[in-house]
């Protein structure tokens, strides 16, 4: 087989895989709808406010509930030192109040 045919076949296979990726995502979204609703129901029932992504510090466990001082609870001069601090932004409510100061 010619090299060009092989290359075009490779591109076609890649594009088919991309299309299959979207098909898979769509199927998974439909299949996961019940699971998502179960999580949303639990959030509504218990009155939860946050995702359980980072449990290493209180202000990263409940990101939306943190106040200005929580990152400095170990001392007024202690800089934020938990690794998840490099992944997340301060909560929206703090950014709104202190945006101009920052």
């Amino acid at each position: 087989m010619r090299k060009s045919s092989l290359f075009l076949l490779f591109l076609a296979a890649g594009i088919i895989f991309l299309v299959l990726m979207f098909v898979h995502a769509s199927v998974q979204m439909k299949a996961g709808a019940a699971s998502l609703q179960a999580k949303a129901d639990l959030v509504g029932k218990l009155g939860l406010t946050d995702l359980c992504l980072f449990t290493e510090a209180s202000y990263t466990r409940h990101l939306s509930q943190a106040d200005l001082h929580t990152p400095f609870q170990n001392g007024p001069m202690s800089l934020e030192h938990f690794p998840s601090g490099s992944l997340v932004m301060p909560p929206a409510v703090i950014r709104k109040v202190n945006g101009k100061v920052d």
Partner: peptide
């Protein structure tokens, strides 16, 4: 007191892995 609206909770997670975050 301070009030945290649901919209602010959602916006907090909209910016959770913002490109401005260190690692990102």
């Amino acid at each position: 007191t301070r009030q945290i609206l649901r919209d602010e909770i959602l916006r907090t997670y909209d910016a959770v892995f913002s490109w401005r975050g260190g690692m990102m």
